[in-house]
């Protein structure tokens, strides 16, 4: 129950197409110039079922049932192709007018068909069969669960699919540059403070999550490192492990609790709330969230 489907909409909000890991394995954050992408069709994408989905031309009417995909498409200037999405997409503001066709629990096939899409992108597999039976073209790629640098590859993939490869390359390269810049600043620093993220009710990400990876990048020691995925961590463990930084959805629930009075993050005034949900959606804004967190924790290093 740690990750009910609806929850995942936000938390692991999926990225776009998966690319071969080779493209980003060795030095993921190096902004090396990749071979000039060409808007060449047919273009084949491997989906999470292992099938090849082939594009002969850019789809004009995309149902992007995924916050991250919507953000990516708008970021590369292809937002006009998005005709439908799910109920919880809140970014970018231009997406406000896009038709909504349901959420993880009720995916309206009827509404999907009525939008006459030439591509439906989903990050979970339950509606695939119905969509395909309705004669729709489906691309299914699971959400990113680690290696957030793959967001850049997902951006490039959407660029290839929509024939906007060079715009996508710019966005993806910028993303990688910003990650690399943080990596560089962190390079010569030793281990940073211990930290905890409380996304509400003591639910905390472990190390095998996108957030865990952000902790690594910022050299934070996640006190919930031995938690799998997202789980509720015992408050007594929080007291015992004494985090120096707490990122909380509701800071008052931490600072107002008498049990946490002597926790370093509370006595040092280091209980922070992030200004947006950027770190819960694996899209281009993810790096905004990383930079915000970096500036909160190392105010002298990042401005």
């Amino acid at each position: 129950m740690a990750n009910p489907p609806l929850d995942r909409l936000r938390l692991y909000a999926a990225a776009a197409a998966a690319l071969v890991l080779a493209a980003c394995s060795a030095q993921p954050a190096q902004p090396t110039a990749p071979p000039a992408p060409s808007a060449v069709f047919p273009y084949a994408v491997q989906d999470s079922r292992g099938n090849e989905v082939v594009f002969d031309s850019p789809p004009d009417r995309i149902i992007a049932f995924d916050s991250a995909a919507v953000e990516i498409l708008f970021a590369i200037g292809e937002g006009h192709r998005v005709v439908g999405t799910h109920d919880f997409v809140t970014y970018p503001p231009e997406a406000a007018g896009v038709a909504r066709i349901g959420d993880a629990f009720n995916f309206s096939i009827e509404k999907a068909v009525a939008l006459k899409p030439d591509l439906v992108f989903v990050f979970f597999d339950s509606p695939i069969e119905d969509l395909e039976r309705a004669g729709l073209k489906v691309l299914y790629v699971e959400s990113l669960k680690d290696e957030f640098i793959q967001i850049a590859d997902n951006i490039r993939t959407w660029g290839r699919i929509t024939g906007a490869a060079s715009a996508a390359e710019e966005v993806a390269a910028r993303f990688q540059e910003r990650v690399a810049a943080i990596e560089k600043k962190m390079e010569n620093r030793g281990r940073g403070p211990s930290a905890l993220q409380d996304v509400g009710g003591f639910w905390a990400p472990g190390q095998d999550t996108l957030m865990g990876e952000v902790f690594d990048l910022l050299k934070l020691r996640n006190i919930a490192h031995d938690v799998e995925g997202y789980a509720q961590i015992s408050p007594e463990v929080i007291v015992e492990r004494d985090p120096a930084v707490i990122i909380a959805a509701d800071p008052a629930s931490i600072t107002g609790n008498p049990a946490f009075r002597d926790v370093t993050a509370v006595t040092d005034g280091a209980v922070f709330k992030l200004s947006s949900d950027a770190l819960s959606i694996a899209g281009p804004r993810f790096i905004d969230g990383v930079e915000e967190l970096a500036a909160l924790i190392y105010p002298n290093l990042f401005e």
């Binding site: 129950m1 929850d7 959420d103 996304v199 009710g201 008498p258």
Partner: peptide
């Protein structure tokens, strides 16, 4: 209400499942 709401249902679900984790 849950279906029409903000997607972060964790507080609701934890509450529904019950527990003493935040007992004071």
């Amino acid at each position: 209400l849950m279906l029409r709401s903000d997607p972060d249902l964790r507080p609701v679900l934890s509450w529904l499942m019950g527990g003493f984790i935040s007992a004071e």
